[in-house]
Design a protein around this nucleic acid. Structure first.
Length: 427
RNA sequence: GGAGAGAUGGCUGAGCUGGUCUAAGGCGCACGAUUGGAAAUCGUGUGUGGGCUAAUACCCCACCGAGGGUUCGAAUCCCUCUCUCUCCGCCA
């Protein structure tokens, strides 16, 4: 959510940001409502001041035995007027809130202008895609023939876009989760969090998933709970409606969670394999930062996510997203893309963003350094560290052998109980 | 799921027979005085949002879990909801 004061004082700046976003939203209505609201508020507050003043005198008048019927009649009229005005103001508030919640964040000045992913800028490429002396297979074929991924059974027990992992596959998934968490907590100073996988509506609104993107989420039918699409939601909302001590910043959390996404609107895309699932595992990195530090924090956080890919020996590249391709709440985003032989291209495996005060304003997360200071909004950041299912896919494809067996990356061997390869299929 | 109790400022805790509550007292915290320095003591201050502003100055408005209602006037009375605690039942 943007600051209404910012929109009021520099409407052109906001309008320009919306153009950069390729958004057709219009802020004129919002500005008109804001003006109207302040006019009514000014009048109503004057009446309330009078009401308070008269109320203060009533006990004395009564004590003196004065007749108060005339005053009460007059005050009744004022009271009714105030109620009307309050109703009007709260209606305008509601309307403004609705509008404000649909305005995306302002892109940072370092974000390149552009309409879609073709305008994203490659920052660096790490590791080189392997040259295969044989025809590499896709992970869904490898996984099925090795008996470690079972899409048909998942379809039976749940539906499309679910996977059953078995044997070494299930263990690999678990090994990667533990490896990610251990690496982040040990090397990068994150506090591990294990959050609820369902959250309430306020939390989903706080981080920007609601109200605009309700169709992307799974909602629990009999409660107003939502299955989390990412651990970003519960973890960022841990500090909702709090004023943090500035000395504690930055606060860094990493959290494993299952993630649930309806994938509305992506029918027919990535239908095979682990790439696009209704449920997947992810380790998420979340930071709460001082405003002046947040872009340094973004670089650090991105480096933390890159680190696990480097340790796994997976080739990847870092993309700076352009203004038209960024997520709704983000001011600046780097995507990490891992090399996926079956796709013959790089595929997103992590998205690292600085939201500046956009989420903090929605979720009301502030900090101050001392009693004298005025509380100000923190900056929030998060990034996948990284998506687990896609990591499994990348490992299967990049570490496959001609006979269909899979080498286990060195760093994962301890997590696999010493297993160095997933042996080829027996059948 | 059943029965009961409760939710007040950073914490504790009064108020809850509606009107100096414009929220007492205590603790904590900040600043100052005192001191060689500290403790103790004394003094002053101590939240959030909004309006007005050059202003994080003054002034005004709102906020006693959330949302409604009654009233000239609500922390206080009424209704709904949420959460917490105690007991019972069920349960991994």
């Amino acid at each position: 959510m943007l600051d209404i004061k910012l929109i009021r004082t520099t409407p052109e700046l906001v309008a320009q940001a919306l153009r950069r976003r390729r958004s057709s939203l219009d802020i004129d209505l919002l500005l008109a409502l804001d003006k109207q609201r302040r006019e009514i508020l000014f009048e109503a507050e004057g009446l309330k001041a009078k009401q308070n003043e008269v109320s203060r005198q009533i006990p004395a008048l009564k004590k003196a035995g004065k007749d108060t019927t005339a005053i009460f009649a007059e005050m009744k009229a004022i009271s009714d007027t105030i109620k009307d005005m309050d109703t009007k103001v709260s209606q305008i508030d509601l309307q403004m809130q609705e509008l404000l919640l649909t305005i995306p964040n302002i892109p940072h000045e370092s974000v390149p202008d552009g309409s879609d992913d073709t305008n994203n800028e490659e920052q660096r490429k790490v590791g080189a895609p392997r040259k295969f002396e044989f025809e590499p297979k896709a992970h869904w074929d490898l996984g099925e023939s090795l008996g470690i991924l079972d899409f048909a059974t998942a379809a039976k027990i749940a539906g499309a876009r679910f996977t059953v992992y078995k044997g070494a596959g299930a263990r690999l998934e678990r090994a990667i989760i533990n490896f990610f968490l251990d690496t982040h907590t040990a090397q990068s100073g994150y506090t591990e969090v294990f959050p609820p996988f369902m959250v309430n509506r306020n939390s989903m609104t706080g981080t920007g998933q609601l109200p605009k993107f309700e169709e992307d989420a799974f909602r629990v039918a009999n409660n107003d709970y939502f299955l989390i699409p990412t651990a970003e939601v519960p973890v960022t909302n841990m500090h909702r409606d709090e004023i943090l001590d500035g000395a504690q910043l930055p606060i860094c959390y990493c959290a494993y969670s299952a993630c649930f996404r309806a994938e509305a609107g992506s029918a027919g895309r990535d239908t095979r394999g682990l790439i696009r699932q209704h449920q997947f595992n992810k380790v998420e990195l979340v930071r709460f930062s001082r405003p002046e530090d947040s872009y340094d924090q973004l670089e650090e956080l991105t480096a933390n996510a890159e680190k696990v890919l480097q340790l796994l020996g997976l080739p990847y590249r870092v993309m700076l997203l352009c203004s038209g391709d960024m997520g709704f709440s983000s001011a600046k985003t780097y995507d990490l893309e891992v090399w996926m032989p079956s796709y013959g291209r790089y595929v997103e495996i992590s998205s690292c963003s600085n939201f500046e005060d956009f989420q903090a304003r929605r979720a009301n997360i502030k900090f101050k350094d001392s009693q004298q200071d005025k509380a100000q909004f923190v900056h929030t950041l998060n990034g996948s560290g990284v998506a687990v299912g896609r990591t499994v896919a990348a490992i299967l494809e990049n570490y496959q052998n001609a006979d269909g067996s899979i080498n286990i990356p060195d760093v994962l061997i301890p997590y696999m109980g010493g297993m160095t390869t997933i042996p080829p299929s027996q059948n």
